[in-house]
Simulated scan of single mutants.
Amino acid sequence: MKPIHADTCVDAWLQGCDHLLAQEQDAWRDYNLVSEIANPLALPPGDRAVVDILNRFLVERNGLPFSTVVNTIFPAQLYQRHGAAGVYERYVSDVLPHVLKHPDCAWGTYAQRILCRVDADGKEFSPLKALVAKLKSQLAISGTNRGTYELGTIDPLLDIPIYDPASSDRNRPNGGPCLSHISVKLTADHRVMLTAVYRSHYWVQRTLGNLFGLAHLQHFIAQEAGLEIGPLVCHSTMAQLETHAKRWNGRQVRDLVARCHAARSLAVAA
């Protein structure tokens, strides 16, 4: 297991890059990288420069833009513009069709599964909305339960089956969904902590966007429940700093990581 203690999402991603680059015996792959991020929404200038470099790298090679990866988990800009009602009501109609146009998202998005499901009676409901309501109801009583807020696979009618073995997910040898489970907890001082478990994590194309998407989801839950945001934990049960036969090679990945480190260091020094 590799524990990563980081201040920001970019910090965690770069630490993971460095660790995976050292795993040359297994094609830059390792198991059980656990990142704890103290300030998941923080984006100082050096970190913003890293996001810009990574986004250009991906877009120039026909990968998913950084913002699209974020939106597969949570539509942060929709929340900023239209509030919670906009997220619940407009994601499927306004955002999802654009995301699904990219071939890498043909299976759907996590946000779609979090925001809109169908119960056993054929009625649509929002698992995320139900989780927020459950959290708020617990805060209104004494003896608040701090560990019953799951977005996972326990009960597809009450929780969010992000990885759903009852669907075609079980037949996909590769590709999404790689996020298996999300667990939401309350800390002793009533901050919202979010833990995500990935069965597989592609560090170049997905991980940094995933971390920011999770951070925005965590922020949404905290805001709507009237709480502060706590640490974000991401458990990548398998992580790979991947190359792509038609998009980028190992030399380009090494160069990408080096440029990201340099840009962040330059901003800190300034």
Rank of each mutant, 00 (worst) to 15 (best):
S93D: 15
G209V: 06
C178H: 03
E242P: 00
L128M: 10
A6Y: 00
L78V: 00
C105A: 13
A130D: 12
D94R: 02
N171D: 08
H190T: 11
R259E: 12
M1E: 12
L131V: 08
E150L: 14
L151P: 00
F74K: 03
A225L: 04
D104W: 03
L115P: 12
G108V: 03
Y198F: 14
P173H: 04
P44D: 05
P97N: 01
M1A: 14
T109N: 04
G16E: 08
C9F: 05
G175I: 03
S236V: 10
W248H: 06
Q218H: 03
I160D: 14
G147M: 14
A263M: 00
V95D: 15
D7Q: 15
K2F: 12
P173M: 09
D119H: 01
R56W: 02
T187C: 14
G209Y: 02
P103L: 10
W107Y: 05
V87M: 01
A120D: 08
P40K: 06
S67W: 07
V204N: 04
R117Y: 01
Q138V: 14
D119I: 01
F74R: 03
T207N: 15
P3C: 10
H5N: 10
L43D: 05
A120E: 14
R259M: 04
S167D: 03
G152E: 03
R251N: 09
R254Y: 02
Y149F: 13
R170M: 13
H181A: 15
L256M: 08
Q218S: 07
Y149W: 06
E228M: 14
R56Y: 02
V34I: 15
R254T: 09
E228P: 02
A166W: 08
Y110P: 04
E124T: 15
A215T: 06
Q138L: 11
S35E: 14
L21R: 03
Q205V: 13
Q25L: 15
E36L: 11
V204G: 06
P156G: 02
